[in-house]
Structure formats: C-alpha cells, structure tokens
C-alpha cells in the first residue's frame, strides 16, 4: 500500500512536470495549425522536433553545443581562478573594498557586450576575445559576491576560532572560507548564466565558425527555421542544465546551508 501511494505520488509529480512542456508544444501547434502566427515565422513543432533529433543524431548540433560549452567553461575557469582570490582579498579589508566598490558596481552595470570592440582590439577575432569578455563579466560578479560574503561572514565563528588561538591566516582558511561558500555559489550561478549570454552573443556577431550562437544566426540567415528553433532550445537546455548541476554540487558541498 505504501509503495502504491508512493508510485502514485511519483506519477502525479511526473505529470506536473510534463504538463508545462506539453502545454507549450500544444499552444505552439495550435498557433501553427490555425495560422494564428505566420507559418513563415513559426514552423510546426513536430517538424522542429524531428529536425532537431536529426541534427543531434548527425552530431552537428552536438559539435556546436560542445564548442559553446567549452567557451563558457574556459571563461568560468578563468573567472573563478582570478575572482575568488580577488574577492577574498577585497572582502578581508573593508576599507579597500569601499574604495573599489564604485568601480565594481559601475562595471557590473555596464553591459558586457559593450566591451566587445575593446576586447576585439586587445585579443583579435578568435576565441580568446570571446572567452575574455565572458570571463571578465563573470569575474566581476564573482568578485562582488565573494567579497560580499567575506565582509558579511558571521563574526561568532571567527571569534570562536580566534579565541582558540588561530592565526589570521588559519581563521581565514578554516572559517571565513567556509562561511563565504554559500555566497560564492550564488555568484557562481549568476556568473555562469552571464557567461553563457555573452558567449552566445559573441558567437553570433564576432567571427565564429561554430557554437550555438553561430548556429542560430546561420539558421536564421539561411532561413532554416526548424534548426533555428531547435538551436534556441538547445541553449536553454545548456543554461538550465548548468544551473541544475551547480545547485546539485552546492547542495552536496554546502550541506549545512540553511540548517
């Protein structure tokens, strides 16, 4: 009986999750079939799905997916390697942080895409420019969040460690670092979604020969609508997947969060 109600719960949950996508495809199909949206702009959902499956099977969608994922991955790696230490250093010293707070806020508010021309001058047309812009935008978010986390770390635990005679370095490594982890993950998730946006746009407009951004704009130019829609959904899958992955990692690393 217990397992029966359990499986009924699972079935109900699955139905709930599936309802959204099913409704979307249904609405899409109605819009397409009734001609409510010009069929020159909206292909049949089933054709789109079929075409996307074909593109996946041929491996071509996977190549572009992989290229974009690589670029996002590199930019995040750079942002983390440079941003976490910088954020810790800034957050450790409130007066230093205040003196650069305006700069960080300013550049955080500047659309990263406005920096493309500058980074093209610095890095040329290839991958390094794309990765550098994305890394820079992600870096700013990380620095801000890590510094904020360090500045606002709960004082009691730091005091406790200090009362045991721990050196400043030790307090930092054993306490402040862990106290900052939740905020670091908040920053990381934001950084990943920003990096994805920047990379996709960069692939569209600055000389890429692969990547989902390139694929979307290519499909649009050659008027391959099913490919265009399929590739857009693929970027969504990537963004959603990365976020989910980070949430799972966060949950297992910061097991104490909110407890």
């Amino acid at each position: 009986m217990m397992s029966q109600s359990l499986s009924r719960d699972t079935a109900a949950r699955t139905l709930q999750y599936a309802a959204g996508p099913v409704l979307l495809v249904a609405a899409w199909w109605v819009a397409y079939a009734t001609g409510a949206v010009n069929s020159d702009l909206l292909p049949s959902p089933f054709l789109t799905i079929a075409d996307t499956v074909k593109n996946i099977q041929s491996g071509r969608l996977g190549v572009d997916f992989g290229a974009t994922l690589m670029r996002v991955g590199y930019s995040i790696l750079i942002a983390v390697a440079a941003g976490v230490p910088a954020g810790i250093a800034l957050g450790a010293n409130a007066s230093v942080y205040r003196s650069v707070e305006f700069l960080i806020d300013f550049f955080r508010s500047t659309p990263a895409t406005a920096l493309f021309p500058l980074f093209l001058l610095l890095f040329g047309l290839g991958d390094p420019a794309k990765i550098a812009v994305a890394a820079f935008a992600a870096w700013l978010v990380l620095v801000f969040n890590v510094a904020y986390g360090v500045l606002n770390a709960r004082q009691t635990r730091i005091l406790a460690a200090r009362s045991m005679g721990a050196s400043s370095l030790r307090v930092f490594r054993d306490v402040t670092f862990f106290e900052t982890l939740p905020q670091t993950f908040v920053g990381l998730r934001t950084a990943v979604s920003i990096a994805l946006v920047v990379i996709i746009v960069a692939e569209m407009f600055i000389g890429a020969s692969d990547g989902l951004g390139h694929r979307i704009i290519d499909a649009q130019i050659s008027y391959n609508l099913t490919d265009m829609y399929g590739s857009i959904v693929a970027t969504g899958v990537m963004g959603y997947g990365l976020n989910l992955l980070l949430l799972l990692v966060e949950k297992s690393v910061i097991h104490w969060s909110g407890r």
């Binding site: 460690a161 045991m164 407890r259």
Partner: peptide, 29 residues
C-alpha cells in the same frame, strides 16, 4: 582560556562533524 558562546548554532563549525569540532582547538595548537 576557553569560551562557550550563548549561540551554539553560530559558534560551532557546521562544516565539521561534531567530533572534528572538538578536535579543532587541539589542531590549532
């Protein structure tokens, strides 16, 4: 000198198991 805080929730290290919390001051020493 040792110190016991009012707010144990904020004084223990939640990323360490209870036993490792007890070990910690000795580690520092």
């Amino acid at each position: 000198i040792s110190y016991v805080f009012q707010n144990y929730r904020e004084a223990l290290f939640p990323w360490l198991r209870a036993i490792d919390n007890i070990h910690y001051p000795l580690k520092v020493m």
